[in-house]
Design a protein around this nucleic acid. Structure first.
Lengths: 352, 352
DNA sequence: GGCCGCGCTGAAAACGTTTACCGCTTGTCA
DNA sequence: TGACAAGCGGTAAACGTTTTCAGCGCGGCC
């Protein structure tokens, strides 16, 4: 069942069928109608491969993430896909599992399928490898992957843009929120430091703490890996301190979930004995008990910005240059894991 | 950069390059080596579309699920993808969002890309639509979608198989576990009844309850939709009863998360005041507080069985027929949301 | 009434592979 | 040394589209 069958059945040429399927408007409505009837009757579906082969465009975007199992990503993917469909593209997903081998395979597959653009949201897809994409002139958008101008220095003309996330704002709101409640000892369960995303959050935290004049003993910061598992370890470490923090901020929600787990397991009441703030505001955060206070960045905005950046590169012209960077804001969403610290008064004593 | 470039550079014909890339062993190792060198030097990547077009096989499997945002599915997808890669296939994902329109688009996309097989794990991809795939002779595997022999009655020769899940075992274990602990009033937060998966769980629950001679007032069963949101509603409904259950079993873990949320919010202690059992045993279950007792079915086994079934259909021959059905077991994983009911003794009074 | 132009359709080339088929080379055996 | 077989490599067709280009028919204008 191919275009020829349809053409024969409708008594037109294959060129006409092609035009009808692509909604080219120079086709006589009479013929168009006849063709559509045949198409529906026969259930004809055009072959994407042949289409892509000849047109040179696959109408396919790739999304590279690190771990589809982290709830943050499916939410992102869904947004990406919806937006992509909106502008006429399909989406293929590559999960690197933070493994170099997987990254290579991932890039290989994207190249094989001749994607028209790639969104990257994982660290360490080594610039070396990405070079391969850029060599082919494939537009790319890096979502919060590296500090602008660092590591990835695109050949000036290349179709590369970045989406940067303003961690500062959300995290400052979070720290201030805690400070206003009366917390003076605030810990941070960081993400892996080789990961720009994580490091940026940590830096934002440190700056916010400093800005309001609080002390930050180095043992209040624990480097984790953004999994619940290690979030538990981090919390254990903080609780073991002589003078444990009365509040913890976490580099992502999975870490926060692990932290809450350990804290509750140790008999602490949240938020009474310990305040917790997550980051990402995955959907699940509100179903935790208590519902988690978290810092949100809109997955929808982010996905949408990524798609639009790719599209812009593809349609780029002198009068319509693609944006080289888009910023996304973060904001605090207060729920019920934050409150006045139990020892608030004593913390306020001079000398603290 | 195509096969011709490589051929020219290596001083061989394109046929040889093709053979080298496909590991055909009739190629002189000398030539093969030369070709590989050129391939690596130039970074040549074969074009999947052209390949698929001429060979007639896309080396692509489709997976149709209902909602990528439910943590159960990413875990499934990951397993499927790994197994698929193992046998030489890639995976494309279709998320129907339980929307008829989306299902149509989904099938359309699979047909367009000429997938070599499809795994379905969502209800109501209307048989009508699936007919379209089967018409094309595309192998399909239905994962726990409909009772065998029901709805989907494949034209006998067609490449369709099913994977059925033995809910009975896991759920019986769960109910017995509760009964042994002393629970007599056990509620069930069901999934949507139009969904075979959910209905099967509900039936298994009812049978298990009956088997051990407990009563099951109809208001102890609440029909939900497998979201945390509605799990909360369900729990509220149960708690509002004059004589609320001392334990609830849930049709999936998201529902259980919602239920726990509401119960804890109402001031109940889990498991002291209320025991909870989930279903699916998503990874998150163990990070809840308390860690959730749940009924597990191995995502890995399930994904693996699906891939193998598709592969078997593709390679089918007289002496190697594909399996028409594969069974997957379920089993109880006991954690800390189940214990002796507070009112255990009074419940045991005669007359109960 | 004739010519020009416009709107629409169809023929054919091209996209980058795989693979059947054919022919060459090389080795072996008589 | 010659003939034949086996093993390899190359030529060309084919896959299902899109798209360019040319041509046909019809209407309007002079």
């Amino acid at each position: 069942m191919d275009i020829r069958t349809v053409a024969a059945e409708a008594g037109v040429s294959i060129a006409t069928v092609s035009r009808v399927m692509n909604h080219v408007k120079t086709v006589d409505p009479k013929l168009s109608k006849r063709v559509w009837e045949v198409v529906n009757r026969l259930g004809y579906v055009p072959n994407t491969q042949a289409r892509a082969l000849v047109s040179g465009r696959s109408r396919l975007f790739g999304v590279i993430i690190s771990d589809i199992t982290n709830p943050f990503f499916p939410e992102l993917i869904q947004g990406f896909e919806e937006k992509a469909v909106e502008v006429g593209y399909e989406t293929m997903i590559g999960s690197t599992k933070r493994d170099l081998k997987q990254m290579e395979l991932c890039i290989q597959r994207m190249l094989e399928r001749k994607v028209d653009g790639v969104a990257v949201m994982t660290f360490g897809i080594e610039p070396l490898l990405l070079e391969r994409l850029s060599l082919q002139g494939i537009p790319m958008v890096f979502i919060d992957v590296a500090p602008p101008g660092h590591a990835i220095t695109p050949p000036p003309g290349k179709a590369i843009s970045t989406i940067s996330i303003d961690y500062e704002k959300g995290i400052r709101e979070g720290v201030q929120h805690l400070a206003v409640l009366g917390h003076r000892r605030i810990g941070f369960l960081a993400g892996p430091r080789y990961l720009h995303t994580a490091l940026a959050r940590e830096h934002a935290f440190r700056r916010s703490i400093q800005a309001i004049g609080l002390a930050l003993p180095e043992e209040y910061v624990f480097e984790g890996d953004h999994t619940a598992e290690v979030g538990m370890d981090g919390m254990s470490a903080l609780l073991a301190l002589a003078d444990p923090p009365t509040a913890v901020m976490c580099s992502n929600d999975m870490t926060a979930i692990g932290a809450m787990h350990t804290a509750l397991g140790a008999g602490l009441r949240i938020p009474h004995d310990l305040s917790v703030i997550g980051f990402d505001d995955i959907r699940l955060a509100q179903y935790m008990f208590p519902p988690m206070t978290s810092i949100q960045m809109s997955r929808r905005d982010l996905a949408s910005a990524a798609v639009m950046a790719l599209k812009a590169h593809i349609d780029e012209s002198e009068d319509h240059p693609a944006p080289s960077n888009t910023g996304i804001e973060t904001r605090l969403v207060v729920r019920q894991t934050t409150s006045i610290p139990r020892g608030a008064l004593s913390d306020l004593k001079p000398g603290e």
